[in-house]
Amino acid sequence: MTENYLELTIGAVFVYNFVLTRFLGICPFLGVSKKIETALGMAGAVVFVMTLASFCTSVIYHYLLHNEALAAKGINLGFLQLIIFILIIAGLVQVVEIILQKLSPKLYSALGIYLPLITTNCAVLGVATINANVGRAVLPSTVFAFFSGLGFGLALLMFASLREKLDLAEVPKVFQGMAIALITAGILAMAFMGFAGLC
């Protein structure tokens, strides 16, 4: 199957942006976007976990759940997709966290607190599920996940810098705090809708 890599890269970042177009991963988008610094940490962790998780889940998808040898025997394991994906991702993040703590304490202290946060993040699971639904091969899946993570990071970073500016702005009392943040997110999402149809 030939893949349109333009769609997998530019498309994943802008057109099908996870947060602003697909509305996945809203929780960290609103939760960790108060400071650019923490937003960067979270974005890094998401890119990392998404790529790794997508690679593993697409391997599982192709070689276990849709194994032709098994299918020939009349055993179809497709229905296990969701539960296995969750299990794999959670276990993977756990392992990565432990290894990271030992090998690179610096990276651990930068990403560490965010890693458990995204174990069961819907954006991470979303990438895996989308890849599975489309039936993408392993390599395009991984590329797509990496760029989706970048797209998530871009949205998070933009939102965080907007919120830092908002802190200094004079906001009417009724809109203060989360209200204005949600309005901002909405406007951002509308802006990203402008990319629709690009590829």
Partner: peptide, 28 residues
């Protein structure tokens, strides 16, 4: 057979992941 394979598979994957995490936690 489907049910059996599913249950055994899930148990195996769970066990495997648990083992990996346990070993990694010990090693690292």
């Amino acid at each position: 057979t489907s049910l059996l394979v599913a249950v055994v598979l899930m148990a195996l994957i769970g066990l495997l992941l648990g083992l990996i995490i346990g070993i990694v936690a010990k090693l690292f």
